[in-house]
Every structure is written in structure tokens, then in C-alpha cells.
Design a protein around this nucleic acid. Structure first.
Ligand SMILES: [Zn+2]
Ligand SMILES: [Zn+2]
Ligand SMILES: [Zn+2]
Ligand SMILES: [Zn+2]
Lengths: 163, 163
DNA sequence: GAGCAATTGTTATATTGTATCATTTCTATC
DNA sequence: GATAGAAATGATACAATATAACAATTGCTC
């Protein structure tokens, strides 16, 4: 996702976002043995349906209104753990929440921008940031296993709306 | 703090770390009107006494053994909020915990390295990382208010010990 | 010392995340 | 197809983290 399209207009064709994600997942499922059970799929779709990061209990509440009896919290967390393991969602540490990955299949650490106005979260790609982190770590003989970058601020859409 | 001294030996003279911090605080207190009450000071000293990030309830438990009756959770959080406001501690988002700032007085966003073996947290200085984040944000017309960088990995001390 | 703002106390509650063990579902093999 | 093991889910309880609301106290200014 380019820097320019990271925060799309609020009223964009979001079905397309979800479709892109789910088709990427289908590809993964065909290649690997990805056991995307109905539960896990429902959680993934729920997360993918929002550009705002969802907490586990948000997901729980939204799933409860469905067909079967509501899931227990632990079940949501288990589904989220699975999705995290397989790189389909990212955890947003500073929000205790989760966001769908925009590049599933390409294993990567997430660089996130978080808009404090519209609450949306966008994934960023930046070899420069990754390189700078790698260089600093190397200088301190620190072995990086999982870099977390979550940039809080105001997105271009909200800045434009604020005029 | 240079990259090399970020993770000091486990058995270093830690009193010196605390003293450095507290003297910096004293300077701040003289210059500004920093109301470092006994409560706040106790919390700050507690955080400064550890290179491992402490959760609010860790602090609570350690303070409880003191003189007066134990503080309520809210009181610890209020003290921590104050210390955060004044740049004396940083919140470690990925741990829901807190670490003393190694450069109080110089307002800055924290770049943290977190060792998953010894659990210690070190503050990093890196204009390169800051610049790369600023550049990416600018490219996406994103206005940065609070960048969070928390690099999980293994520190040089633990790597050396692992041989 | 009266008035006001900042801090702290007290109690209750909200939010986020796990432990444990039973049950069900899936898969491979015979 | 029966069957045994592995993976996933259900069910219940609980732990850990964080905040709301309002009362009481402290510290400062006039
Ligand atoms: Zn979308
Ligand atoms: Zn926004
Ligand atoms: Zn020290
Ligand atoms: Zn270490």
C-alpha cells in the first residue's frame, strides 16, 4: 500500500478492500494447509471489514449478533492468535486491538500509522525505516526479532477535513 | 545513551543510574515548578530502580511493603500519568509497563529496545530512525504526533551469555 | 483564615486477557 | 467404515490492566 493511498477516503469502496484480502487468503489456503475454519473466517472478515482497529471484545460483540450463540472471549483470542501466526492480521500494541494485514502472504513486520481523529490504522511500507532500525540495532549488538512501529498522528483525510 | 551502553552489564553500579536520573529531576524541579510529591517520587524511584519495565501493579505491590497503607491502583496510575506528562518515564506499549527515561529534561519520543530474555528495556537514540519516520509520514501527508518504536529482540549481554 | 486549585483517598467498576479441563471435529490409518 | 490421535472449540472461572465518580485533604494566594 503506497503512502498516498494508505488512508483512503472514508466512503471508498470498502467491499473491494475486503475482497482483495479474502482472495489473497484464498490463494494462501490453496498453497498451504491453512485451516481457516468458519470461526476464524468470521473473525478475519470482521477485522477486514474495518479500517479502525478492533479490540477482541469489539469483535466478540459484533459476532454475537450472528447466528449461533456468542463466542467466548477465549475463542476470539484463539482465532486472533491463529490469524496473527499466519500473518493475516496485525496486533496494534498501543491500542490493544487488531487490524487486517494489507499484504497477507508477504511475511513482514507491520509499520502502522494510527489516526487519532478517525481512529483508522494504515499499514506503511518503508525500507528506510526498516533499514534505520536494523542499523541502530546492529550498532548496539541487539538482535531484532520483532520491531514494533506505531506512529500516532492525524491522517491526510482528517487534516484536509479540518480546514 | 549510546547504542553500546544501552544494555549495561546485569551487575553494574545501578545506584549511579538512579542518582543520575534523580539529579536530573532535581535540576528540572529547580528550574520549573515541578510538583514532585512524595507519592510521585516514590513511584519514580521505583521505576528508576529497575531496568526491567514495571507494570502499574508491580509498582503497587512493591510500594505496599513501605510505610503507609498501600496505594490504590488509581493513585499509581495518576502518579505515572504525571511522570509521563513531564517526560520522566516512558510507557512501553507492547508490555503495558513503564520505564524511566534516561534523558529527562530533553523532551523526546522514546525509541526502545526490549530484550525478551532479560526483559530489560533500553532507550535508543537514532536521528536516522526519526528522520525515516518523518519522511514516510510526510510522504503520506500524515501529521505525526507521537511515534512509538519498540524493538523486541535479544540484547548484547544476553547474546554474549548464550554462547 | 477564606477561597480556590491541585492532589490524594475511597469505592466500585470497566476493559483486556488466560487457565483449565471437557467436548467436539478433523484427519490419517487400518 | 471403524478407530485412534491431533487439532479445534466449548464452558467456566479467573487474572491482569485501567478508569469513573465523588469525597476528603493539602497547598497556595489573597
Ligand atoms: Zn477499505
Ligand atoms: Zn483520520
Ligand atoms: Zn542501572
Ligand atoms: Zn537481555
Amino acid at each position: 500500500m503506497s503512502a498516498e493511498s494508505a488512508f483512503p477516503p472514508i466512503d471508498h469502496d470498502h467491499g473491494r478492500c475486503v475482497d482483495l484480502l479474502m482472495s489473497a487468503v484464498e490463494r494462501l489456503r490453496a498453497e498451504q494447509t491453512l485451516r481457516l475454519t468458519p470461526q476464524r473466517r468470521r473473525v478475519l472478515e470482521m477485522v477486514a471489514a474495518s479500517h479502525v482497529a478492533l479490540g477482541a471484545y469489539d469483535i466478540l460483540a459484533r459476532l454475537g449478533g450472528g447466528n449461533g450463540r456468542p463466542m467466548a472471549p477465549i475463542s476470539v483470542y484463539r482465532a486472533l492468535d491463529f490469524l496473527l501466526q499466519h500473518g493475516l492480521v496485525h496486533r496494534v500494541e498501543s491500542l490493544n486491538a487488531f487490524i487486517a494485514c494489507t499484504r497477507p502472504g508477504a511475511r513482514h513486520d507491520a509499520l502502522l500509522m494510527i489516526c487519532s481523529v478517525c481512529r483508522r490504522v494504515a499499514e506503511l511500507q518503508s525500507p528506510a525505516i526498516e533499514a534505520a532500525i536494523a542499523a541502530s540495532a546492529a550498532a548496539g549488538h541487539f538482535l531484532v526479532t520483532h520491531p514494533v512501529v506505531e506512529i500516532a498522528g492525524i491522517c491526510r483525510v482528517c487534516r484536509a477535513a479540518d480546514r
